[in-house]
Design a protein around this nucleic acid. Structure first.
Lengths: 161, 161
DNA sequence: CCCATGTCAGTCTAACTGATATTT
DNA sequence: CAAATATCAGTTCGACTGACATGG
């Protein structure tokens, strides 16, 4: 473990609420409710919906690329992809330059379902952000994304076996 | 669905990064790494370690109380509790006023393991917060806790069947 | 009787590791 | 041969629902 996080003034005293603990608690509340609503209204799991939204903005990704972006194994992502393809929400075509790679794109129905999922996400975000100013919202989002980037950078730097 | 999230200026346009998506992505990165390190160094799962830290600050909770605080079912929490008890990290005693309720407390060994887990959490938080000022850290934590409270409040208000 | 608690059983989700085939 | 990709199989973890006993 060659990590040198630098000196921090926040230690792990008992009774204190940790940032990692608070994030985990919030995410579990979000995912639980999202899972219930996506299952009930759209018959989708959370990973399935997530893959739809990623593919919407990054059309043509392969299964392996999707898995890397999502920080899961290709095997885990493949189950998600297979379910979406079986329902006709995505379609896969061989890449021109490489016969083995299957590029994945949303179908029209896939886009329609993704938009309906957006409304569920809108509702939950609305609940989370009641009374929060746009500036505060932006700062919050920026903090989350920054933490994610730094964590992944630190982990990758640490991975040199 | 009697929710009225109020007007927000942030809609779900394609290509935009949603707060909920960013939080989910960050939490998955955290949990994945935490899971690997807790398993390797302490032979603990993430829910087991979480339960230890909750019991450390709130000693004497019953299984049902722990489950409600963690937003999982009593059955799910019971597996966690059983594993910790089998390893001697917690002990359970009948409540004085109610024979059926088992109050749960950390053992000395449980406290020792929890402290070693703290160091792992410290390292990961250090990576996430490289170069972040204490003020920014506090604001970030406050935003997360506020979002969690408002989300749960909104969901409870919505639960009136 | 009602309700909260604890617990047993079975199920399902969503990840994992291992192994194998294909393609460049 | 090496590396990346896809995919089959088996496994584990962590949640769920249902059923049921017990104590207040």
């Amino acid at each position: 473990m060659a990590v040198t996080p630098g000196r921090r003034r926040v230690s792990s005293e008992e009774g204190e609420v940790r940032l990692i603990y608070a994030i985990g608690r919030l995410d579990r509340a979000i995912r639980r409710e999202l899972r219930l609503r996506l299952a009930k209204e759209l018959d989708l799991t959370v990973p399935q919906f997530t893959a739809l939204t990623v593919l919407r903005s990054r059309s043509g990704l392969s299964n392996a690329q999707l898995a890397r972006r999502s920080l899961v194994t290709p095997q885990a992502m493949q189950e998600v992809i297979a379910a979406l393809e079986a329902r006709g929400l995505i379609e896969r075509t061989q890449a021109a330059h490489h016969q083995r790679i299957l590029q994945t794109k949303l179908t029209a129905e896939g886009r329609r379902i993704a938009r309906r999922g957006d409304r569920i996400v809108d509702e939950l975000e609305g609940l989370m952000l009641v009374g929060v100013s746009p500036a505060e919202h932006r700062r919050f989002l920026a903090s989350v994304r920054r933490a994610d980037e730094f964590l992944r950078a630190g982990l990758n730097a640490n991975q040199e076996h």
